[in-house]
């Protein structure tokens, strides 16, 4: 078990390294010089070749790529000093660069954005698991019935709507058209430390949108896995032992059905942590997704780089957690 986790951690670190290289190379060999955006910005769109060369030189873009990647890695561990034009910027470890726009260290901004995104992700995921899994179980128990069929088809309908459209409609109907009081505060993220109610009311609409949409999907995943697990031989054995229906469904059926659901959830949750771009954009919550979007439009390369890397790390960590949970659920994985 321990060796397994260590093995997964090592391979995770390897993957992060490779991804960071790939991202680095992508910007290095992009269509224009990596210094072009900052040159444009600083010189008010009158970036001459001479100015560009200055930026390239101070940012180190005239050095070989491996040398600069080395400096980047070193910065992550011990910090570094970055020079843009003639100004020096101190960037403490773990240094992910200096934002071209704000000139602040990327890491600090990342940390300040995290609570908003994490709030959305955790709340939304909790909602859709809390509703999706039990509804899926109930549907599987009544499989083939009218209730099951109508539920499955209506949920299929909802989950085939593009998420951004669904979120937009939720916002439109709940706040603008009907002005539901609970949702009126949306769009102002305030950290939970500044009062739970403010935090809660600011997040609530985003959670509802994410929760309903995820719920439709998780209901279908759970239902599918549950139908499969309920048709297994061991369910028949459990019934033959004289166990009550509740024990058969939850202890014997759901435990096995959870394995595939957990697998999907791991990928989903990792993606959520990396930034719920649509949710943040539509409900105006300034989290990592929003930030990434701004960085892309503003050609803020260090930020784009950092958000991409953060996304990769989030995905790898959540996958690692899934694997551990998986081995807790299924002793065959743990003991082989």
């Amino acid at each position: 078990m321990f060796a397994y986790v260590v093995k997964r951690l090592i391979s995770g670190v390897l993957v992060v390294t490779l991804i960071s290289m790939a991202i680095f190379l992508l910007f290095w060999y992009g269509p224009s010089s990596p210094a072009q955006p900052i040159c444009d910005r600083e010189s008010g769109n009158r970036c001459t070749p001479a100015r560009l060369a200055t930026y390239e030189k101070t940012l180190g873009y005239d050095n070989p790529v491996y040398e600069e990647y080395g400096k980047f890695v070193k910065g992550v561990f011990v910090g570094r000093t970055l020079t843009i034009a003639s100004n020096d910027y101190e960037c403490a470890a773990p240094c992910l660069g200096i934002s071209f726009r704000t000139k602040a260290p990327v890491k600090e901004e990342l940390v300040s954005r995290m609570p908003a995104t994490f709030s959305i992700a955790v709340g939304g995921a909790l909602l859709y698991l809390l509703f999706g899994v039990p509804i899926g179980v109930a549907a599987a128990r009544r499989r083939g019935s009218l209730a099951d069929k109508s539920l499955v088809s209506s949920f299929l309908f909802i989950s085939s709507i593009p998420y951004y459209l669904f979120a937009l409609l939720t916002w439109l109907y709940l706040t603008v058209t009907f002005e539901v009081p609970l949702f009126s505060n949306t769009g102002y993220f305030s950290p939970i430390t500044e009062g739970p109610w403010k935090w809660f009311s600011g997040m609530f609409l985003a959670w509802v949108a994410l929760g309903i949409f995820g719920c439709t999907q998780y209901t279908r995943y759970t239902r599918g896995a549950m139908v499969e697990s309920l048709s297994e031989d061991y369910i028949r054995t459990a019934k033959a032992k004289g166990l009550p229906a509740r024990t058969i469904i939850y202890k014997h059926g759901l435990r096995a059905a959870l394995v595939p659901v957990v697998t999907i959830f791991g990928i989903d949750f990792g993606t959520l942590l990396a930034g719920t771009i649509f949710t943040e954009r539509i409900f105006e919550i300034k989290g990592i997704g929003w930030w990434a979007l701004e960085a892309v439009t503003g050609k803020d390369l260090p930020v784009v780089q950092a958000t991409a890397l953060f996304g990769a790390v989030a995905l790898i960590i959540s996958n690692l957690i899934v694997d551990v949970v998986y081995s807790v659920l299924d002793p065959r994985v743990r003991l082989s």
Binding site: G214, Q217, Y221, I264
Partner: peptide, 13 residues
């Protein structure tokens, strides 16, 4: 969110 509805194929009742 993975938005692929085919991520897990449905099992027919």
């Amino acid at each position: 969110m993975t938005q692929d509805p085919n991520a897990r194929s449905e099992i027919e009742p």
